[in-house]
Structure formats: structure tokens, C-alpha cells
């Protein structure tokens, strides 16, 4: 342990008052928590000032409630035989698909399954898919961006050419090919989307940001302090990349949900149920041809895809304002 240095009193200035500094770990923790809360609140107030931010949050909130509602309904008022999203059958209805009724607020599908139950059940998987894909993307892109900006040279060339290659590939077509070759379930789909996003465009964007952080004098200051490569990348570069990473997380959620919808519609995914599959079911039964007559087969799922995708996208835009001070209205 280093003893505090014996500093001589500064020449002209009078001796500074001796101030007691808290010695407990708890006070350190409290101070840090308070700080985190404070900066969260500051960011929150900017976010809440943007109308689209609030709107997107409300939409995401509604879908979150829907996702939580399904297991609760299944446990309480819905019996599994009738309401299971995959194996259920509405014995109370004569014709399938049946129009919305009191017992089936959004009607049933051609196989006699409750549409509302399907919708709610799928919401949960959409969230799981979107968030998994986003986390994978951001974890990869942030690391790749930071490492390739920091080390430069061949590492940088390799990752950037890889990113170019991925961008050049048509994403959905690639997923179609992959789904034909492998059985893609929800998790693998999230992983594939995450990896493509992480090594692709997001990595380039985060790398350019990391480059501007790398040349800041505080990086040099950290080196003079004795910090190694690992310290600099994880303590200085990545934390400063995180706001932007968060933003791209939001955008990745959007693209993941959208990609799932497309693949499910084409019937290429190994999923129990999803919004895309709901539309797929309606389509294979030929009900999409009937105009608006069987609207409950398409509109709930279609609207959900659109709404949740745009909510995450708009949320990202609002977050952009928090993250990117240049977009912020000046108030100092």
C-alpha cells in the first residue's frame, strides 16, 4: 500500500481546510448509484421531450403487456384445448375461420385456432427474437468496431472487407438460402441476423465512431497512466461507443422482426407460431384473395409487425437525440 504523500503546504495559498471524506464502501456505492440515476434522468428527460420517443415507448409498452398477458390468460380464463395457439381448436364455432365473436375477439384461423391467442403468444417470441438479435449484433459490432479502430492495420482491413462483403450480400435472400439448408428456429435466426448485422454495416458505423474516440487526448492520457490495450478498449473506447450501440440495437430489433415476418410468410422457418406464420396460414388457405372479408386473419398480425417495427425504429431516432448532442436543441 502506498502511504499518502507528505506534500508540503502550497506556498502562497492558505492551508486548505481538512475535509473528512467518507470511508465506507457504502458511501462510494451510494454516490455512484446517485450519479447513474442522475445521468439516466437527464437522458430520460430529453427522450421524453420528443413526441415520437414517447409514442414509440407507449407502443412498445402495449406489446410488452400483450406478451405478458398470454401466459396469464392461459392460466386463468383460457383453456388449453381451445386456446392453445398451435394445437387448440374452437369447438364452439361451426365454420372455420370464424369471425370475431365474444369468445374469440379476433376470430379463429382456418384451422380453428384463436387468432388473439396466436397474436399474443407470438408477441413474446418477437421480443425474444428482436432483442437476442440486437444483443448479438451490438456485442459483435461494438467489439469489432473498437478493436479494428484501435489496432488498425491488417485487423482493420480484414474486418472492414468482411463488412463490405456482408453488406454486398442481399440479406433476405441469404436468409432464404440458409433456411433452406438448415432448420432455422427462433434462436438460430436471431443468431444469424445478429452475426450478419454485427459484422456488417453496424460494425463500420461503430468503427468510424471508435476512430474519433481513439484520437482523443484522453486515450493518450490513459496510456501515460499505464493502461494497456485491454484497459483502453474496454474502459475508454467501448463505454463511449455504447450510446451509439444502443441506437443500433433499436434498429436491429426492427430488421430482425421484419426478416422473421418475411421468412415465416414464405414458410421457411421452424417456428411454432409467429406473426409471419399467421399470415402464411391465411395465405396458404387462399384467404388473402378474398379481399377484406377475412380481415382478422391478416390485419392483427400485419398491423403488429408494422407497429412494433416502427416503434423500435422511432425509438431509435428519439434515442439518437439523446446520444447525439448535435441533434439536440441547444439549451445552454
Amino acid at each position: 500500500m502506498i502511504t499518502p504523500p507528505n506534500f508540503p503546504p502550497p506556498g502562497s495559498a492558505s492551508d486548505p481546510p481538512v475535509v473528512e471524506v467518507g470511508h465506507s464502501r457504502l458511501r462510494l456505492l451510494i454516490a455512484r448509484t446517485r450519479l447513474a440515476l442522475h445521468s439516466f434522468r437527464a437522458g430520460w428527460s430529453i427522450f421524453m421531450e420528443s413526441r415520437i420517443g414517447v409514442l414509440s415507448l407507449v407502443i412498445i409498452g402495449v406489446f410488452a403487456i400483450m406478451a405478458v398477458a398470454h401466459p396469464i390468460l392461459m392460466l386463468t380464463i383460457w383453456d388449453a384445448e381451445t386456446y392453445d395457439p398451435v394445437t387448440g381448436y374452437a369447438f364452439d364455432q361451426v365454420d372455420q375461420p370464424s369471425a370475431p365473436s365474444w369468445r374469440h375477439p379476433l376470430g379463429t384461423d382456418p384451422l380453428g385456432r384463436d387468432v388473439l391467442s396466436q397474436l399474443l403468444w407470438s408477441t413474446r417470441s418477437e421480443f425474444v427474437l428482436g432483442i437476442t438479435a440486437a444483443l448479438v449484433t451490438v456485442a459483435i459490432a461494438t467489439t469489432v468496431g473498437a478493436v479494428s479502430a484501435y489496432y488498425g492495420g491488417l485487423v482493420d482491413v480484414f474486418f472492414m472487407r468482411l463488412a463490405d462483403l456482408i453488406i454486398a450480400l442481399p440479406g433476405i435472400s441469404l436468409l432464404i438460402v440458409l433456411s433452406a439448408l438448415f432448420k432455422l428456429n427462433l434462436f438460430y435466426l436471431a443468431l444469424v441476423i445478429g452475426i450478419l448485422g454485427g459484422f456488417g454495416g453496424t460494425a463500420i458505423i461503430l468503427k468510424s465512431q471508435a476512430l474519433s474516440i481513439k484520437v482523443k487526448p484522453y486515450i493518450e492520457a490513459a496510456r501515460v497512466a499505464g493502461g494497456g490495450h485491454f484497459h483502453i478498449i474496454f474502459v475508454h473506447i467501448i463505454p463511449n461507443l455504447l450510446p451509439l450501440s444502443l441506437l443500433y440495437m433499436m434498429f436491429t430489433v426492427t430488421s430482425a422482426i421484419f426478416a422473421e415476418a418475411v421468412l415465416s410468410f414464405l414458410g421457411l422457418l421452424d417456428l411454432r407460431m409467429s406473426w409471419g406464420i399467421m399470415i402464411h396460414t391465411a395465405n396458404t388457405g387462399g384467404y388473402l384473395m378474398g379481399g377484406t372479408r377475412y380481415w382478422w386473419l391478416v390485419v392483427p398480425a400485419g398491423a403488429s409487425i408494422t407497429l412494433l417495427c416502427s416503434a423500435f425504429y422511432l425509438g431509435g431516432r428519439a434515442l439518437d437525440e439523446v446520444v447525439n448532442p448535435r441533434l439536440r436543441r441547444r439549451h445552454d
Binding site: 500500500m1 502506498i2 499518502p4 504523500p5 506534500f7 475535509v19 471524506v21 467518507g22 470511508h23 464502501r25 462510494l28 492520457a221 490513459a222 501515460v224 497512466a225 499505464g226 493502461g227 494497456g228 484497459h231
Partner: peptide
């Protein structure tokens, strides 16, 4: 930071050193 990366003192020592 220089204290931390060089492992000088415990967290609490560092608070004291920084305060000083």
C-alpha cells in the same frame, strides 16, 4: 486511473489519495 491500472492501494485507499 493511474493508481487503478497499476494496482496501487485498495479502492478506499484510492479515494483517500485522490481526495488528498
Amino acid at each position: 486511473e493511474p493508481l487503478a491500472v497499476q494496482g496501487m492501494g485498495t479502492v478506499l485507499d484510492r479515494v483517500d489519495m485522490v481526495s488528498e
